[in-house]
């Protein structure tokens, strides 16, 4: 593509990442497609979705507000998250790349793979972000954490534009020193202790690094996928010869998920592990108030 050859990849990358941050992303980076294709299982590789993809751009937006961490669990279930903001930025970014550089791009669908139920994504946005260097896997079920921004929501953009990839984070912020201290005392980190269904466990070595992370995703999903599913499916079940056949049919389990979203019910995670995570809640710019304070400090430093 002639127009592609005229593009300076490094400059394009800078413009694209600047666009993302200008639109509200806290962090953005480019993942190496070769690594993604190697790690992701067949059917879920970037090239399975976009055959000519050359680069995967991952961006993260801030997670909950500080106030959100103080509310009772029931209210927390209704908070939802800020992922839609990330999706909006990614959607705009795909338009930006095509409009600015003339190269085909897509906003990566963040949805689950309809053929495989509620627990299998089309593409792992987490893998994209990790490889792009804007998050590292935590002991809390591999939720990504960032040393500066804590807990973020991610979105991805696929493009046929070749961009220089970023490296993954050099250090994993998880476990935080206070978590290591607690682990030494009671054998569990806060996320492990306070998980309502005890779906997390793991070990930490003498240097304070993760050795093993165990995550019972089925138990985690049990907690979150049963709350306030809308009654249409129940109505169908009520008229079926065997209600279990309808209620627990694989296709209908996706419906549970969808209806939970529609009703504002708990979805995918209950946030309890993040609520007690010092990185998610206390990283230097983990919430808008901390970011405001950081901006004020920076402005003060820059004054003569």
């Amino acid at each position: 593509m002639s127009r592609n050859r005229a593009i300076d990849p490094a400059d394009a990358k800078q413009q694209i990442l600047a666009y993302c941050k200008r639109k509200g992303a806290l962090a953005a980076g480019v993942a190496d497609v070769a690594v993604l294709d190697r790690v992701a299982p067949p059917g879920h590789r970037p090239s399975d979705l976009m055959p000519k993809v050359k680069s995967v751009i991952s961006l993260g937006v801030g997670g909950q507000t500080r106030g959100a961490w103080t509310v009772p669990a029931k209210a927390m279930g209704y908070f939802g998250s800020t992922e839609s903001r990330a999706y909006t930025i990614a959607y705009g970014c795909a338009f930006f790349i095509e409009g600015r550089f003339g190269v085909p791009s897509i906003y990566c669908p963040p949805d689950v793979d309809n053929a495989f139920g509620t627990r299998v994504p089309l593409q792992s946005l987490k893998l994209h972000a990790e490889v792009a260097g804007i998050g590292a896997r935590s002991l809390a079920g591999d939720i990504l954490l960032h040393p500066e921004f804590g807990y973020m929501y991610f979105a991805s953009v696929f493009t046929e534009l070749k961009l220089p990839p970023d490296a993954p984070l050099a250090e994993n912020p998880c476990p935080a020193p206070s978590c290591v201290k607690m682990y030494r005392k009671v054998g569990r980190t806060p996320c492990m202790k306070f998980c309502p269904v005890q779906c997390l466990s793991g070990t930490i070595d003498e240097q304070g690094n993760q050795v093993e992370m165990h995550y019972d995703m089925a138990a985690c999903a049990d907690l979150s996928e049963q709350y306030e599913a809308l009654p249409m499916m129940l109505s169908r079940a009520a008229h079926a010869d065997d209600a279990d056949d309808v209620l627990l049919d694989p296709d209908n389990k996706l419906f549970w998920y969808k209806m939970s979203v529609g009703s504002g019910g708990l979805l995918a995670q209950c946030f309890e592990c993040m609520r007690v995570c010092p990185i998610a809640t206390q990283a230097p710019q983990a919430d808008p108030i901390l970011r405001l304070e950081a901006a004020e400090r920076q402005a003060g430093d820059e004054q003569p």
Binding site: P72, A73, P196, V197, L223, L266, E272, V276
Partner: peptide
């Protein structure tokens, strides 16, 4: 998954309040 699924788990959150 269905065989292992435990119903009403969300009540743990609602009853215990969440967080610490």
């Amino acid at each position: 998954e269905n065989r292992r699924m435990r119903v009403n788990n969300f009540q743990r959150l609602l009853e215990l309040g969440g967080g610490r």
